[in-house]
Write a protein that binds this DNA or RNA. Sequence first.
DNA 1: AATACTGTTACGGT
DNA 2: AACCGTAACAGTAT
Length: 259
Amino acid sequence: MPELPDLQVFSKNLHKKLSGKKVEKLTTSSTAKLNVPAKTLKESIEGQVLDKVHRVGKRLYFDFNNGNVMAWHLLLKGELFLYDKTHAYDRIVIDMLFANGTGLVMKDVTTWAKVELNPSDSDGVDPLSKEMNFNFLKENLGKTKTAIKKFLLDQDKIGGIGNAYADEILWHAGISPFSLSNKIPDEKIKALDKAIKTTLQNAEKKIISANPDIITGEVRDFLVVHNHKKKLSPGGAAIQFVVVGGRKTYFTEEQELYK
DNA sequence: AATACTGTTACGGT
DNA sequence: AACCGTAACAGTAT
């Protein structure tokens, strides 16, 4: 369940380790969820040099020097591993072996993880980009009257925010997750814009300092409200939670409800 | 041993 | 029609 900050760090670490290397062999499992036939994917990537690894929404993009792009979405349980020589991982989805013997493996116990060749970029605005600003939020929040948390989680609108960081962002912005998107005053939209950027960037820094080489798993102990170990927010308010659609939403009364 | 947890999508209902 | 909530998917950890 990595979200944007986790994936951002993973992509940087993978870029550092793997860019400039040539793919010798690409293998996918028979259960891998692909958008093209396995043979097409294999032929499109093998022999190519990896130019760049970066993050788009909750996907990792691998850009190759022939112009092909391979995207991996880890869904809930996808995990990445680097290996040097031999490896014996269970439930491998995809295995990318480079010419010098290093390789990258993605395994997933659920088999839900997705691998795409040249994905159509249907993701929403990147939260860390310049397009994410007051005007974008003002315009799009006004178009719908859905709960603000739902808006933040809609990957077609904004790419990369998940359940945990949506709670964190809304706490920092002082907006109740149940506020209606079209009822949020301009001042709070400004706070939301700021909270999106600072919360995600701060998380990225925390993750790097806790585990500089991380490419899988998650560091979450610094979260201030979406954290089952915490009883009180930094402001001293009791942390409450409700289950929405099987997912926990954590919040406090410090957050204003606009209805 | 029962339950919580996680992202996405499909689906039935409003 | 556009939107909503929920189940399903699977396994691990508590």
